[in-house]
Computed example of a mutant assay.
Amino acid sequence: MTATLEHTNFTVADPKATAAWLEAVFGWKIRWEGTAMDSGYTVHIGTGSSYLALYTPPSASPSAERSYDVIGGLNHLGIVVDDLDAIEARVIDAGFTPKSHADYEPGRRFYFDDDNGIEFEVVSYT
Score class of each variant (00 low, 15 high):
residue 35 T to L: 07
residue 34 G to V: 04
residue 51 Y to K: 00
residue 1 M to Y: 07
residue 90 R to A: 08
residue 65 E to C: 03
residue 41 Y to I: 09
residue 90 R to W: 05
residue 110 F to I: 00
residue 68 Y to Q: 10
residue 111 Y to A: 01
residue 6 E to H: 13
residue 57 P to D: 02
residue 51 Y to N: 02
residue 103 D to S: 10
residue 7 H to Y: 15
residue 93 D to E: 12
residue 91 V to D: 01
residue 101 H to V: 05
residue 21 W to I: 03
residue 112 F to Q: 13
residue 21 W to P: 06
residue 11 T to L: 11
residue 59 S to T: 05
residue 35 T to W: 04
residue 72 G to S: 01
residue 42 T to N: 06
residue 47 T to P: 02
residue 31 R to V: 05
residue 44 H to F: 13
residue 47 T to S: 13
residue 81 V to E: 15
residue 117 G to V: 13
residue 44 H to V: 07
residue 82 D to M: 05
residue 105 E to F: 13
residue 28 W to E: 08
residue 118 I to F: 11
residue 12 V to G: 00
residue 17 A to H: 07
residue 55 Y to H: 04
residue 38 D to Y: 12
residue 71 I to H: 06
residue 11 T to H: 09
residue 41 Y to T: 08
residue 101 H to L: 07
residue 75 N to H: 11
residue 114 D to G: 05
residue 64 A to Y: 05
residue 111 Y to H: 09
residue 56 T to S: 03
residue 17 A to E: 12
residue 93 D to S: 09
residue 105 E to Q: 09
residue 63 S to D: 15
residue 101 H to N: 10
residue 31 R to L: 10
residue 82 D to I: 05
residue 110 F to T: 01
residue 94 A to R: 07
residue 25 V to M: 04
residue 13 A to E: 14
residue 63 S to W: 10
residue 93 D to I: 01
residue 22 L to D: 06
residue 28 W to T: 02
residue 114 D to E: 08
residue 16 K to A: 15
residue 102 A to D: 13
residue 25 V to Y: 04
residue 6 E to N: 11
residue 89 A to V: 03
residue 120 F to R: 00
residue 79 I to C: 03
residue 85 D to W: 06
residue 14 D to N: 15
residue 19 A to C: 04
residue 105 E to R: 06
residue 73 G to N: 04
residue 28 W to M: 12
residue 12 V to W: 13
residue 119 E to Q: 07
residue 6 E to I: 15
residue 72 G to Y: 00
residue 6 E to K: 14
residue 71 I to T: 04
